[in-house]
Amino acid sequence: VPQRAWTVEQLRSEQLPKKDIIKFLQEHGSDSFLAEHKLLGNIKNVAKTANKDHLVTAYNHLFETKRFK
């Protein structure tokens, strides 16, 4: 089981690129989880459509539901 890579403050910070969060989610989330949160596909394309709040919610949801690969 992966550990949380970032704190809530870090997740919301401008310093953390959306692409980093997407990469983490794609590496650790199950396909059904990723599909549900519309996070499947090319990281660049996902970054265009997903806002930061959406990614933070998905990140927290992944750990709450433990839907890891």
Rank of each mutant, 00 (worst) to 15 (best):
15 Q>P: 03
66 K>A: 10
67 R>A: 11
41 G>Q: 04
7 T>N: 07
51 N>E: 14
54 H>A: 09
19 K>M: 12
31 D>H: 13
68 F>L: 03
20 D>Y: 04
29 G>A: 10
3 Q>C: 15
22 I>Q: 01
7 T>H: 05
56 V>L: 04
63 F>W: 06
61 H>T: 13
44 K>M: 15
29 G>Y: 01
59 Y>P: 00
38 K>W: 09
40 L>K: 11
51 N>W: 05
60 N>Q: 12
67 R>N: 12
45 N>W: 14
7 T>S: 08
48 K>N: 12
52 K>P: 03
32 S>R: 10
25 L>Q: 00
15 Q>F: 08
58 A>L: 04
47 A>M: 12
45 N>F: 15
27 E>V: 08
37 H>E: 05
6 W>G: 12
45 N>L: 14
24 F>H: 02
21 I>Y: 01
39 L>E: 00
39 L>C: 02
58 A>T: 06
8 V>W: 05
28 H>W: 15
18 K>H: 10
20 D>E: 13
14 E>S: 14
46 V>F: 05
62 L>F: 04
41 G>E: 04
20 D>C: 10
13 S>W: 02
58 A>V: 05
54 H>N: 11
48 K>P: 07
50 A>E: 06
20 D>Q: 09
48 K>F: 13
25 L>G: 00
35 A>M: 10
1 V>W: 14
58 A>C: 09
62 L>Q: 00
54 H>K: 10
43 I>R: 06
61 H>Q: 10
9 E>M: 02
16 L>N: 03
26 Q>L: 07
27 E>G: 08
40 L>Y: 10
26 Q>M: 07
52 K>W: 13
61 H>E: 12
45 N>K: 14
51 N>I: 08
69 K>Q: 07
7 T>Y: 03
7 T>M: 03
18 K>F: 06
39 L>Y: 01
15 Q>V: 08
12 R>C: 15
63 F>T: 02
20 D>V: 12
40 L>G: 09
42 N>D: 15
32 S>F: 08
39 L>N: 00
23 K>W: 05
46 V>A: 06
25 L>D: 00
32 S>C: 14
22 I>F: 03
11 L>F: 01
16 L>H: 05
33 F>W: 12
18 K>V: 13
2 P>Y: 03
69 K>C: 07
68 F>S: 03
59 Y>S: 02
51 N>A: 09
52 K>M: 06
38 K>G: 14
2 P>R: 04
62 L>K: 00
11 L>R: 01
25 L>C: 01
10 Q>L: 05
22 I>L: 09
34 L>N: 04
32 S>V: 09
16 L>V: 15
54 H>C: 14
37 H>M: 12
66 K>I: 05
28 H>I: 08
62 L>M: 07
69 K>D: 05
44 K>R: 11
61 H>D: 15
67 R>S: 14
9 E>G: 01
15 Q>G: 11
43 I>S: 07
5 A>D: 15
8 V>L: 09
36 E>C: 12
50 A>I: 14
45 N>I: 15
18 K>A: 15
26 Q>D: 01
51 N>D: 13
42 N>V: 11
32 S>H: 09
26 Q>S: 04
43 I>Q: 07
69 K>L: 05
69 K>I: 07
37 H>I: 04
11 L>D: 02
17 P>S: 09
13 S>N: 06
30 S>P: 03
14 E>L: 08
12 R>T: 13
65 T>N: 10
65 T>G: 11
9 E>N: 02
8 V>R: 03
66 K>W: 07
35 A>T: 08
14 E>W: 06
2 P>E: 04
2 P>M: 04
63 F>L: 03
51 N>H: 08
56 V>E: 07
63 F>K: 01
7 T>L: 05
46 V>K: 06
48 K>D: 14
69 K>E: 05
53 D>K: 05
49 T>E: 11
10 Q>F: 06
39 L>D: 01
20 D>S: 09
19 K>W: 10
16 L>I: 15
42 N>S: 10
68 F>K: 02
3 Q>L: 08
68 F>M: 03
29 G>T: 02
58 A>I: 15
51 N>F: 06
62 L>Y: 02
34 L>F: 00
55 L>E: 00
53 D>R: 05
25 L>S: 00
40 L>D: 11
